[in-house]
């Protein structure tokens, strides 16, 4: 518990945590509500979305879908950056050395970092939900729509959001430990999340095996899970796999990323 408390204290007071959460919240509001609202009120709709689709996307009862659809790509990239920075920076600042000589076992120290990151990520998803719900209620009230609060069904997209966020967190942690620094970890992570998987999807249209592979890569699995629980109309959201299959792949990635990172952390010399 001491390790979680320590990590939470330092992540809570880290400006980067709040800058990244803030950027994500602005993005989700801008792309999820502001642009849709402007399109609905005289903008040019270039995505061939009907008015009814735009209204539906902004309805408070559909806020779960609004949360999950941003996470496979851009939200995931932000979470990955947060995790990679949280772990990788410790090498540059020398804080891993301080941490590992403080007393806890290496595995406990790592568990502390993961526990604190988990709390931050749950908070991020919760804030995304609350902010999106607030925006949806505001738009619905201003437009005079009939609206209702989301029911228990919202738990499914929220659980999917958490699983997607956990996968990107694990990926960031893994990169931070492997590269032993923040810069390369963030660079590689962003390239993977935003560039590499999209390029592979492009190649996939020419090569069947590559196309099959892209569906189960980290971003692909995240996109498929988002698609399966109602997320749509955002980059990275896919509908090639069933929700259970995509979720199982994501669980596998979480286990592999965190397992490999912890094993490396425990066994590798800190020089």
């Amino acid at each position: 518990m001491g390790s979680v408390k320590a990590e939470l204290l330092r992540l809570w007071k880290w400006p980067a945590t709040w800058v990244l959460i803030g950027v994500w919240l602005v993005m989700t509001l801008t792309f999820g509500y502001l642009f849709n609202y402007l399109a609905l009120n005289g903008g040019t709709n270039t995505r061939d979305l009907s008015q009814q689709q735009l209204i539906s996307a902004m309805q408070p009862e559909n806020v779960g879908a609004a949360v999950v659809r941003g996470l496979p790509m851009f939200g995931g990239a932000i979470i990955l950056v947060l995790a990679a920075l949280a772990v990788g920076s410790g090498y540059g600042w020398g804080t891993w050395k301080t941490t590992l000589t403080a007393g806890p076992r290496r595995i406990s120290a790592m568990a502390g970092t993961l526990g604190a990151l988990a709390i931050i990520v749950v908070l991020l998803v919760a804030l995304t939900f609350v902010v999106n719900l607030g925006a949806a209620i505001t738009v619905a009230s201003v437009e005079g729509w009939d609206w209702s609060l989301p029911g228990a069904g919202v738990l499914e997209p929220l659980a999917a959001s958490l699983l997607i966020a956990a996968m990107w967190t694990g990926f960031g942690v893994f990169l931070g430990v492997v590269t032993k620094g923040p810069a390369l970890a963030v660079g590689l992570g962003l390239m993977w999340a935003i560039v590499t998987e999209n390029l592979l999807r492009g190649v996939g249209s020419l090569l069947g095996p590559v196309e099959s592979l892209t569906k189960v890569l980290p971003g692909g699995s995240a996109g498929n899970l988002a698609g399966a629980v109602g997320g749509s109309g955002a980059p990275g959201v896919l509908t090639d796999l069933g929700g259970t299959t995509a979720a199982l792949f994501l669980v596998g990635y979480v286990v592999v990323f965190l397992g490999a990172a912890t094993l490396l952390k425990v066994r590798r010399d800190l020089v």
Partner: peptide, 21 residues
Amino acid sequence: PGFYPYLSGRDNLRVHAARRG
């Protein structure tokens, strides 16, 4: 010393103290 640059000296010690119990 390996400390978090954005934290105060006191907060850095609080983080370290939490780890040492």
